[in-house]
Computed example of a mutant assay.
Amino acid sequence: MTRTAHTGIICIGSVLWDVIGRSASHMRQGSDVPGRITRLPGGVAMNIAMTLVRFGLTPTLLSTIGRDPEGDELTEACARLGMITDHVYRSDDLPTDRYMAVEAANGLIAAIADAHSLEAAGDKILRPLLHGPLGTATRRFDGLIALDGNLTRSLLERIARDAAFADADLRVAPASPGKAERLLPFITHRRATLYVNLEEAGLLCQTEFASSQEAARGLIARGAARVLVTDGERTATEADPTGAIGLTPPEVLVTRVTGAGDTFMAAHIAAEAEGQDREAALASALHAAAIYVSGDTPL
């Protein structure tokens, strides 16, 4: 059963099945090792929404899910986890998207994101925000939107310039370094906060940075209104034109990495929704991400 109300937080982007193979061994190209393979609800928008739910919030999903058996199962799982699924675009012609990754003791070995259905659906997923019930041309949505870079470049460009999103608090993250440049339209957006890692920041600025502090300064110099830059176990930085704050993540044993950045972003959003100040919100996000990668938080 789906929910029928929303709490002002909308997650737009990929909602799919994550198929993750994990091994406690070190791996390289061609390795064949024992491990565990799991299938769980995933995707950037989904991972963000799951973390928001853990912090007591009720996010609304805007995505596409096929009307195939996998899609029915995924939709039911989302609703059961506590998300609003009423406005998800269900396609008769497009299959449910999937993500596949292999992780080992030495980190992420390889991953493939099959988000072709999300890309093919295009602006159909935005209809509830443009034509009701979540928003209209005369009643623009003014809450918080978590937006992921799995959308096409053209659709992201449209969102960046469309007046329908002018009053929203946009929180934007690339789905991967390979899609980081899709976020270029949001660098100078006055109401966008960018969540990127060190590599993604470098791609957006077409350079290489030695630290998150340097990357944050570079993005702000390019016109960004606000950025959060992570760098694995090294210092993470939150910055806007008034200044920057840097904190080091807690030390933990890393047992998984897929979804860590999404957890960080969602935990930061939740902390600010609680009224935490800049430093406290960054600390809360780093703590949540550390717990996640240690494997202590349920997926």
Rank of each mutant, 00 (worst) to 15 (best):
T230H: 08
G56A: 10
H6E: 14
D18A: 04
P298D: 01
E76S: 10
A166I: 04
E199M: 02
T207M: 06
L282W: 06
V33C: 10
E181V: 05
L253F: 08
G35I: 13
E274K: 15
D32Q: 12
E200R: 14
E181I: 03
P59A: 10
P177Q: 03
R36W: 04
N150F: 05
G66L: 11
Q276N: 15
D296H: 10
P133S: 01
K179F: 03
A160P: 02
E76F: 07
I12Y: 08
S23M: 04
A215T: 12
A270M: 13
A273M: 14
I291H: 09
N150A: 10
T85P: 03
V15S: 14
G295P: 11
A101R: 02
L183N: 01
G275M: 07
L203W: 06
P128I: 04
T136P: 00
N197D: 09
A160D: 01
E119D: 12
G246P: 02
M50I: 05
V196N: 07
P95I: 02
H131C: 05
G232T: 12
Q276T: 13
L40V: 15
I159Y: 01
V15G: 13
Y89M: 13
F264D: 10
G243A: 09
V252M: 02
D142R: 01
A236M: 08
T60P: 14
T235S: 13
V252Q: 07
R39N: 04
F264G: 13
T248R: 10
L61V: 15
T138Y: 00
R161P: 00
R28G: 13
M83Y: 05
E73P: 09
K179G: 02
A283Q: 12
A180N: 02
A79Q: 03
A281T: 08
G218L: 07
A290M: 08
T237V: 14
A216Y: 00
A49G: 09
I112W: 00
P128T: 07
G56E: 08
A289N: 05
S294Q: 11
S212G: 14
A120P: 15
R3K: 15
T193P: 03
G275P: 10
P59M: 02
S31Q: 05
A260D: 04
T242I: 04
E199C: 05
L156N: 01
R28V: 15
G8K: 04
I84R: 03
L62W: 10
D148A: 07
V252I: 15
T258C: 02
E103C: 11
T152S: 13
R22N: 15
V172H: 03
R217E: 13
S31A: 06
P69K: 06
P250H: 11
G246E: 14
I159M: 01
R191G: 00
P177H: 05
G132P: 14
D93K: 11
T2C: 07
L130Q: 07
E199L: 10
P128Q: 06
E103A: 07
E208M: 12
R234W: 01
G275N: 04
T152G: 08
Q206W: 12
T2F: 04
